[in-house]
Design a protein around this nucleic acid. Structure first.
Length: 276
DNA sequence: AAACCCGCCAACCGCAACGCC
DNA sequence: TGGCGTTGCGGTTGGCGGGTT
């Protein structure tokens, strides 16, 4: 038994929206608000299915959309979020005010993917494309500190040199995927908080400032399913825009990445994972 | 100037998730 | 609790425009 179609397709317009359709949709939503997409087209006098109206509004007509090129900061954030969330475009978009999931998805597929590939990084795994050869060479390559996101590649061949760096310096340098001997460190510098809402700039700035830094350690690969997953918080005072806003967490479970964690509430993703 | 190629991105489609009864 | 309608998500497509031959 099939599902009934969302609309009478033979009587519906398809393809690019006209200016008049846009105006009708905008004026209807302005006076009636979003929602009830199925009945909206008829009420607004549009020969479109509800799905199409919703998409047009969300991806193009919404007044809070930020048009124009992605900034370098947005690039960085998208790469970091993708390394953490994968192709969860809606979740990624929720962290980028004014950007839509569709826009980010397109941008990823047309720009960032290519950018990462040109740097020898697999955009799906965020690891070196050459990984997967013999174990020794892979291990050797893991000695190279890779900035996944932004191309600055730091070669860390001498452990003693690394030790010369203080914590702050290391923090500043490791702005991406970092491989340290047996331990792969993913410094995601990512703060999970409630998604961006429609707020004015000051509110957003304030909210941004309440973010906390997170670092993800995974040993011997990305799979962190072992029982030895360890969570710890870290004083983030050394990180430029950081503060603490940790929700109280009590239970052990699996987070949205499928990683075993003590934290079920990912609003407080400030933790280190270590896998033995 | 025309033909072709290629990249971009708006829009579509199918399915999963959600919510209500 | 299961069925059904609605909404949301992510993969894919196709048209358009700019660049190249």
């Amino acid at each position: 038994m099939g599902r009934s179609p969302c609309c009478e397709k033979e009587h519906m317009n398809k393809g690019a929206w006209t200016k008049e359709e846009d105006e009708r949709l905008v004026s209807y939503i302005k006076s009636h608000g979003e929602g009830c997409w199925r009945s909206l087209p008829r009420a607004a006098g549009l020969l479109r299915c509800g799905k199409s109206c919703r998409l047009r509004w969300i991806n193009y007509l919404r007044p809070d959309l930020k048009r124009g090129n992605f900034t370098h900061d947005e690039d960085e954030l998208i790469i970091k979020l993708h390394s953490l969330l994968g192709n969860k475009w809606s979740l990624i978009a929720a962290r980028l005010p004014g950007r839509t999931d569709n826009e980010i998805k397109n941008y990823w597929n047309t720009h960032i993917k290519r950018k990462l590939l040109s740097k020898g990084i697999d955009p799906n795994t965020h690891r070196s494309i050459n990984a997967g050869r013999d174990h020794d060479s892979t291990k050797r390559e893991d000695q190279i500190v890779k900035d996944v996101a932004f191309g600055c590649q730091l070669e860390k061949t001498e452990k003693s040199e690394e030790q010369k760096l203080n914590k702050n310096q290391k923090q500043n340098l490791t702005n991406g995927l970092v491989c340290k001997e047996e331990r792969l460190e993913l410094n995601l510098e990512l703060r999970i908080s409630p998604p961006w809402q429609n707020k004015n700039h000051d509110d957003q700035t304030r909210e941004r400032s309440t973010y906390t830094a997170s670092r993800l350690y995974v040993e011997n690969g990305m799979d962190s399913s072992s029982d030895t997953a360890k969570c710890q918080t870290e004083d983030s005072s050394s990180i430029s825009h950081s503060s603490l806003d940790i929700s109280s967490i009590s239970s052990v479970g699996y987070d949205f990445l499928g990683l075993k964690t003590r934290f079920m509430d990912f609003r407080s993703l400030e933790m280190d994972y270590t896998r033995k």
